[in-house]
Design a protein around this nucleic acid. Structure first.
Lengths: 305, 305
DNA sequence: AAAACTAGTTGACAAAAGCAACTAAATTTA
DNA sequence: TAAATTTAGTTGCTTTTGTCAACTAGTTTT
C-alpha cells in the first residue's frame, strides 16, 4: 500500500473534520454553506451570471435559480439583464448582501482565531507557509510566475540559506559531497569580506518568503566582474526566473560600466550553460578536474560588454 | 485585518473545493459522505455504539438510527446487545461492509494518486511533511516531542541551513546585522577546515526534515573542547530539545575524555544561559563588547569534566 | 430560415437532516 | 430502595437540500 496516499487520506479526514463544514447551518447563520458559497462567488467576481455560478460550484441550475430568487426577495442580491445576452442576468451583491457576507466573514475569522490563538507568531508563520506549500503542490498550474518576488538587499539569514541551497541542490543533482558546500562557504566569506554595495550585488528570487533562486555580480580588478552563485531550485525551473536573474545581473554590469563579465562553471550544468549562452556568454577555457567526489570539466565563460 | 487568518480562510476555501466533499454521492457510490463516514467510524473502532457515533460525527440520533437500520438491512453492519448496557448495541462491520469500505478506499486512493501523479518523490515528501505540520499546529498538542528527530551526520545543505538559522534567528531576536552571519560563516569555514570526525560532532534536531535546532562540539588543544552553535528555532522551544542537544554534546565530551568544555556566549541569551547553568557550566569570564550593531557582554562558561 | 443549443424558470419529487415524542434501561437522588 | 432523572435508541413528522425533466425565450450554427 502506498503510504503517501494513505497519509494524504488521513490528512483529508482530519481536515474535513477540522473544517466543520458538514453541518447544515454555516456558522449558526440562517444560511447553508451552499448559499454562502454562492454569495461568496458573487462577491468575488463583482458581477456574474447564474450559469457561471453553476459551473464554479457544480450546482443544479434549477436549485440555484430558486436560491437566487430567495436572495432577491431578501434583498441580498440585485440583477440586471445582461447586455450581450438577453436571456441572462448580471448578478451582484446589494449593500445588505455585502454586509451579511462581511459579518459572516468576521465570524469565520473569529473561529479561526480561536483555533490558532495558542500558536506564537513563528508557529503561525510555519502554519501559513505549510498551507501554501500544500496548496501549491496540489494545484495543477503549480507555481505562477507572479508568485515569485525579486529583491537584492541582503537580510540576516539570506547568505546562509543560499549556501544551504548550493549544498542541497548540488548534492542532490550532481552528488557533490559536503566539501562543495565548504567551498561555497569560503567563497561567500571572501565575498562578504570585500563586499562593496556600490560594485557588488546579489539578487534573490523568492517564493513564499523562501529563496528559490539567486545570482550575484562580484567586482574584480581591471573593470571586470564575476557572475557567481547562479542557482535555481529544481522545482522552480522553466518559469523564466533564471532569465530574469541573469538579465538583472548583466544590466547591472552595464550600468556599472564593467568591460567584461566572466563566470566559472562546470560542463555538467547543462541548463545553466544554455542560459549563459543565450545571454551572450562564450566559452573561453575548459579544464578537466576532479573535485567534490566527481570528475568534470571546469569551464570559464566570458561576456564582453 | 489579520493576514494570518485571511490566509487560512483562503486555504480552507481551497481545500474545501479540493476535497470535493460537497457533492452528494461519495465517489459515485450510492452512499453519501455521511454514510461513508459512519461506516468508517465503525471500522475504525472495531466495535462501537450508535451514541458514540453521534458524538464523533455530530449527527442526530434519529437520523443515525435510520441510516443504521438501512445498513443492517443491506447487511453492511451487524450488532449485538451490549453486555453492560441493555439499551445499547455493539455495532461492527460485516464482511461485506468491510469489502464495500475497502473498495471505496481504493477508489479514494486512486483519486488522490491522480492528483499527485505529477509530483516527483521529493515533492511528495514535502507535501506529506507540510500536511503533518498543518495538522500538528491545528491540533491541541501542537508540536509533539516525538515528532522531533535527531542526527549527527553532516549531509549537503546542513551547514548552510545552520548558518541561515543563526543569521535569521539572531537577526530577528537580537537585531544582529548581517555581519553576525558573516562571522558565523567564518567560524563554520574554520570548523570544516579542521574537522575531525573522531573529535568533532554536530547534532541537529529536525522537524519534518527541516533543521530546527543544533549544537556542536569542536576539539581544542590541551584536551579541551568548545561547545558551539547552540541554537533553537523559537517555535520549538520548551520541548526539551535544547536539553537533549546539550546532553548529547556533554556526553560526547565525556566519552572522548575531554577534561574541560567551554563555550562563548553573550549575556543576552537568557534562555540558553539557563540551560548552560543547568548542565553545570560556570561563568569564567565576562567582557563588554560592541559588535553586530549591539553592545553586550561576551561571556565564557566552563564545565570541568 | 430551420435546427440545435443555451440561460434561466418551474413543477414534481427524492434524499438528507432535524425535531420531538416515545420506550425501555440505567443512573442519581432523596 | 423507590421515585425522579437521565440516557440509548426508535419512530413519526417536518424542513431543508438537492435532482430531474419539461418549458420559455433568446442565441448560435448550419
Amino acid at each position: 500500500m502506498n503510504t503517501t496516499t494513505s497519509k494524504i487520506r488521513s490528512f483529508n479526514r482530519f481536515y474535513t473534520a477540522h473544517l466543520d463544514i458538514l453541518s447544515q447551518h454555516y456558522l449558526d447563520s440562517e444560511y447553508s454553506l451552499t448559499e454562502i458559497r454562492i454569495l461568496y462567488e458573487i462577491s468575488e467576481s463583482k458581477t456574474i451570471t447564474a450559469q457561471k455560478i453553476t459551473e464554479i460550484l457544480n450546482l443544479d441550475k434549477g436549485y440555484l435559480s430558486r436560491i437566487l430568487k430567495r436572495f432577491l426577495k431578501e434583498n441580498l442580491i440585485e440583477r440586471v439583464a445582461s447586455e450581450d445576452d438577453k436571456r441572462a442576468f448580471d448578478i451582484k451583491l446589494t449593500d445588505s448582501g455585502t454586509e451579511l457576507l462581511s459579518v459572516l466573514n468576521a465570524k469565520s475569522e473569529n473561529k479561526i482565531e480561536g483555533k490558532i490563538e495558542k500558536l506564537n507568531s513563528s508557529e503561525k508563520e510555519i502554519l501559513v507557509d505549510s498551507m501554501n506549500t500544500v496548496r501549491n503542490l496540489l494545484t495543477e498550474n503549480k507555481i505562477a510566475r507572479e508568485d515569485i518576488t525579486y529583491r537584492h538587499e541582503i537580510t540576516p539569514g539570506d547568505i546562509g540559506y543560499i549556501i544551504h541551497l548550493h549544498g542541497a541542490i548540488y548534492g542532490k543533482e550532481y552528488n557533490f559531497s559536503t566539501d562543495f558546500e565548504k567551498y561555497v562557504i569560503k567563497t561567500f566569506y571572501d565575498f562578504l569580506e570585500k563586499y562593496s554595495p556600490e560594485n557588488d550585488r546579489i539578487w534573490m528570487a523568492e517564493y513564499n518568503n523562501k529563496i528559490v533562486g539567486c545570482v550575484a555580480i562580484v567586482h574584480q580588478p581591471n573593470e571586470e566582474a564575476q557572475l557567481r552563485w547562479f542557482l535555481l531550485d529544481s522545482a522552480f525551473r522553466g518559469l523564466g526566473i533564471g532569465k530574469r536573474l541573469l538579465t538583472e545581473a548583466v544590466d547591472f554590469c552595464k550600468e556599472k560600466k564593467f568591460k567584461n563579465v566572466f563566470l566559472l562553471t562546470t560542463n555538467m550544468q547543462d541548463k545553466a550553460l544554455r542560459m549563459y549562452k543565450m545571454m551572450g556568454f562564450e566559452l573561453t577555457k575548459s579544464e578537466e578536474v576532479e573535485e567534490w567526489g566527481k570528475t568534470f570539466f571546469e569551464e570559464r565563460y566570458d561576456l564582453r560588454l
